[in-house]
């Protein structure tokens, strides 16, 4: 079975982002970038399924600037077989991402698509559900377990009250939650091997997709700051502050 996985290049999750002073966005120049953590989990899942003999080929797709090739190489060092970059310097919003991914799926015909549940930059949490909608396929968003058997998959999803279990027919789109797996570290020999794996570069126009943004970003600002707090010496002082100053208990 062929699996398609998507990966997004984002600001490293442990970097403190700075809002640009002109309000046009956040500072990305000279900022450490990384693979979106949920996409890492998606790649790891596909690789584990390949190691278990369920998956035969892993195609990994990224959309964005030329440097996304590095993100694809990382995915290939983790175990993906080949990469496709849809190269564009434009801002690509989730609906356009979904249309591009669908166009590639139409060509590649995977039986399973694994995507991250959200990208930690725009925090939209949309693309996976949108891809399945455009294809008319079932979806399993926020999964923490998946077992494929024949033409169906049993999945466990994280929901607000606990867990939910579904059986979906394949082909389908699955999006990953944190507890699905713990991604491996890439090793030097695998990084070297990944350099030789095929990487195709396409333009959005070649896929016949209009990526013009539908949402206009009018401004980006700092969130309101909390006023500075105070250190208390002991529990007694804490309780006194809560009762007499904050009046919350």
């Amino acid at each position: 079975m062929k699996v398609l996985v998507t990966v997004k290049r984002v600001i490293d999750p442990y970097v403190k982002v700075r809002v640009k002073s002109d309000g046009s966005g956040v500072e990305t120049a000279n900022v450490k970038m990384a693979m979106n953590p949920f996409c890492e989990i998606a790649v790891e899942q596909a690789v584990r399924m390949k190691e278990a003999g369920v998956v035969t080929e892993i195609v990994v797709v990224s959309i964005g600037v030329q440097q996304c090739q590095e993100t694809l190489r990382t995915a290939m060092a983790m175990g993906a077989d080949r990469g496709i970059l849809v190269e564009t310097a434009a801002e690509v919003q989730p609906l356009a991402v979904a249309k591009l991914v669908k166009a590639i799926i139409d060509k590649e015909q995977p039986k399973l698509v694994i995507m991250g549940k959200q990208a930690i930059d725009d925090d939209s949490n949309q693309a996976g559900q949108m891809v399945s909608a455009l294809l008319g396929w079932p979806q399993a968003a926020f999964t923490s377990a998946i077992t494929v058997s024949g033409d169906t998959a049993d999945v466990t999803r994280e929901i607000d009250g606990g867990m939910e279990k579904l059986t979906i027919t394949l082909p389908a789109v699955v999006t990953t939650d944190l507890r699905l797996n713990e991604p491996r570290y890439v090793t030097l020999p695998n990084i070297m091997k990944a350099k030789k794996k095929p990487l195709e570069v396409l333009k959005p126009e070649a896929l016949g997709v209009d990526v013009a943004p539908r949402l206009k970003i009018l401004k980006v600002e700092e969130p309101p700051k909390r006023s500075a707090g105070v250190k208390v010496a002991d529990v007694q002082e804490l309780v006194a502050k809560l009762k007499n100053e904050a009046r919350v208990i």
Binding site: P94, S124, G128, L134
Partner: peptide, 23 residues
């Protein structure tokens, strides 16, 4: 924008050819 709404709203949006505004 809970686990409930996040699950199906993008599916509705894409079916209507709409770019959802999240959260």
């Amino acid at each position: 924008a809970t686990g409930f709404g996040k699950n199906f709203m993008p599916r509705i949006a894409a079916s209507l050819d709409v770019q959802q505004v999240s959260d």
